[in-house]
Amino acid sequence: MNNGKAFRRGMLHGIPIGLGYLSVSFGFGILAAGKGLTVLQATLISLLNLTSAGQAAGVDVIAAHGTLIEMALVQLTINIRYALMALSLSQKLDGRFTAKHRFLAAYGITDEIFGVCAAQPEPLVPAYMYGMILGAVCGWVLGTFLGAAAGALLPESVTSAMGLMLYGMFLAIILPPARKQRSVLCVVVIAAFLSCICKYCLPMLSAGFAVIICAVLAAAAGALIFPRKEDAEE
């Protein structure tokens, strides 16, 4: 497949991802503006990070005037899954993926882009990934811009309700696998339980650190109680 065709095909696969991102990033834009960030700052965060949970947690750290160490640890914990996805994708790259392309395309590894790329039967070429990343990034950045800019124009009853959007998406990500796998359900319940304890019993713990501690403990418990078989499907 030539580069132009691969790029267009990637773009075609990226547009639905971008449309899905649009409304979620709209919610992020409102959230970020609500916590005192400017439209430019919110849009820049989306352009540079391209990750929902990490950005939401990052904005919390900024709003709470957390330390930079906390910011780095929060991002590391929340986004470490991308390392696993990057590792998995690195095994199926076409020979055209030179070092330069690897450095560029790594920027666009998200849950959805990983999912679609990993599901392709043939080895990945750079043009295909670039097309998909472009489609997805446009939706993510545009949505953030609109949310941050128009958030102030919309009535408060609407924007406050949209604050739920990101969390609704998180529930939509964790519930279906939790329903199918007892191990995931167990991890999810432990994490939520610990998080409630942190919130109500340890109020001096900042939100960012609380998420890190709860998530690491819950995932470690899951790994100890339910170690996964080598070839278990992901």
Partner: peptide
């Protein structure tokens, strides 16, 4: 497990 744990705790 870590992504599910993070999203749940958040």
């Amino acid at each position: 497990y870590i992504p599910y744990a993070v999203l749940s705790a958040m």
